[in-house]
Design a binder for these strands. Sequence first.
DNA 1: AACTGATTCAACCGCGTGACC
DNA 2: CGGTCACGCGGTTGAATCAGT
Length: 271
Amino acid sequence: MGRAPCCEKMGLKKGPWTPEEDKVLVAHIQRFGHGNWRALPKQAGLLRCGKSCRLRWINYLRPDIKRGNFSKEEEDSIIRLHDQLGNRWSAIAARLPGRTDNEIKNVWHTHLKKRLEPTKEEAHEAPAGGGGKKRRPAAGPATKRGGARRAPAAAALPAAAAAPVSPERSASSSVTESSVTEQGNTGSSPGFPKEESFTSSCPDAEEFQFDESFWSETLSMPLESFDVPMEPCNAFGAAATSVPAGAADDMDYWLRVFMESGDVQQELPQI
DNA sequence: AACTGATTCAACCGCGTGACC
DNA sequence: CGGTCACGCGGTTGAATCAGT
């Protein structure tokens, strides 16, 4: 099958995302959704390929992302699900609200696999059914990819199977459980809420903290209000003019951005 | 305090699949 | 019906950070 090139690589930026880019992407998705990832960067004025935007959004900017350490329960769930599903990270992620496949994959490779391997060896591991599960030695040579892909995600089990989570990495974890479970992944595509799912209740923020809860709050605003520029968008627009890229110590930067948001009208790129 | 090796995690790469024309 | 396009996925990489010496 002919496969379109990922993107015109000419002039497109790669590497870590800057706060500026983040805000542009978030603001754009907030306002217009992401019906077409390929076209999105152009519309938003980002020098990224759609793929990169999509990944950034899914793994980092999505409002229902829950960051921070995995709880014991989550880790157990991952182990159990991995045993059932194999390396179908997206399917596993679909059962762990607020966690991304990438994150789960990382955790698996960095923590869980190591932890498991000794015992598995003892047990002369015989993975339960599932299929397509292949496990490489921890530090083995990179094998070229291949093999079974994309289980029919339809099998979406009730999200209730997912373990509750106790945020631990205090620096970043403050997404309320309710906001996460509420959105769950019950609908649409596994592990990825569509724009419509942003309409979770807005967690009351008595005192503002700029962390994931910020996104939860701002992005959970009803989309109907798209006509009216949302504050974060304004904030972004305003801040873009006053904060040099990369200068930001992230928290301070975003906090300032939010505080300065005021009522500046949108300065977002127009389509 | 400086150096080095190990670990972590965000991001990239390339392929499979389904939708669309 | 076959070809093309875009999306989503899993595997891999490499910079940043941490821990040990």
